[in-house]
């Protein structure tokens, strides 16, 4: 396959993945607006006469993680499971489409939805909650937040491979909502009992949020390397689980489709 055609496939696959997601209100509306509405409520409205001086800034990082997590885990988890279920994936596998293009498209869709949420959150924080950060912090925070699509897509991929079609949405929600809460994405982690804080140590969203908070010097003080190491390890575990699931699904796919 020529490089030019490969590039074109990757690009169009991504384009149509995004167009498709944008036209799906069940996906686009929650992933694009929930982080903004939550942030508006918890930080802008409560924060201006709020709990403490730093709520809108703190929450910007954690709701940013929430905003990146949503499209990644739903796009991959529910999207992949659905496409496996309907047979779209099977059909595309018979074409010369490289498998990489499919994964690339999903990651790009997660990245672009994440970027839209992040940009909107930043504008809201800056102009409605009075958050001001150093220029490097704005860029670094955006960068750290968007880099979160990698572990979260890996997690979504693992779910999408293992969960069956319609149940995938339920499974994703069962992972997504408790993880968001326990990782301190809605309310600061230090407000929780110690047991819950210990649970958070196992969650990728917690470590990603801590990295984001590090940029604005509001993290819990664990070393950057620890967060990196946990995220990398968990990403690898998710990818390994996904690979295992794909192998298993291959040998059973006919029975499922018949």
């Amino acid at each position: 396959m020529t490089l030019g055609r490969r590039f074109r496939i990757y690009l169009l696959e991504a384009r149509f993945q995004i167009v498709e997601a944008l036209r799906e209100p069940m996906f686009a509306i929650p992933t694009l607006t929930f982080p903004l509405i939550f942030y508006l409520f918890f930080s802008v409205i409560m924060g201006t006469r709020g709990v403490s001086l730093t709520v809108p800034t703190y929450a910007l990082a954690t709701y940013g993680v929430f905003g990146v997590l949503g499209p990644a885990i739903f796009g991959f988890g529910a999207g992949l499971a659905n496409e496996r279920d309907t047979g779209v994936l099977l059909l595309k596998q018979t074409t010369p489409m490289p498998a990489g293009a499919y994964l690339f498209a999903k990651v790009m869709a997660a990245l672009i939805f994440g970027a839209v949420v992040v940009a909107a959150l930043f504008l809201m924080a800056a102009h409605m909650a009075g958050v001001a950060l150093h220029r490097w912090q704005w860029f670094a925070l955006a960068g750290v937040l968007l880099a979160g699509v990698i572990p979260f897509c890996a997690l979504g991929l693992a779910i999408g491979v293992w969960a069956k079609g319609r149940s995938a949405v339920a499974v994703v929600n069962l992972v997504f909502l408790p993880m968001a809460m326990l990782s301190g994405l809605w309310l600061p982690i230090f407000m929780f009992p110690d047991v819950m804080q210990d649970i958070a140590l196992a969650l990728p969203a917690y470590h990603h949020a801590q990295l984001a908070l590090k940029v604005i010097a509001m993290d819990a003080g664990q070393p950057v390397q620890v967060h990196f190491a946990v995220l990398m390890a968990e990403t690898l575990v998710f990818l390994a689980l996904a690979t295992l699931g794909f192998r298993r699904a291959d040998s059973f796919s006919m029975r499922r489709s018949r």
């Binding site: 396959m1 169009l12 696959e13 498709e20 309907t86 099977l90 059909l91 074409t95």
Partner: peptide
């Protein structure tokens, strides 16, 4: 090329969009 027994492709893309995407797969 193949036409499989599948329950459907993305409901949100137009006929032309589906066709353009598949055309892009081939030299």
């Amino acid at each position: 090329g193949a036409m499989l027994q599948i329950s459907g492709i993305s409901a949100n893309l137009t006929v032309r969009e589906h066709i353009e995407l598949f055309r892009a797969y081939y030299p």
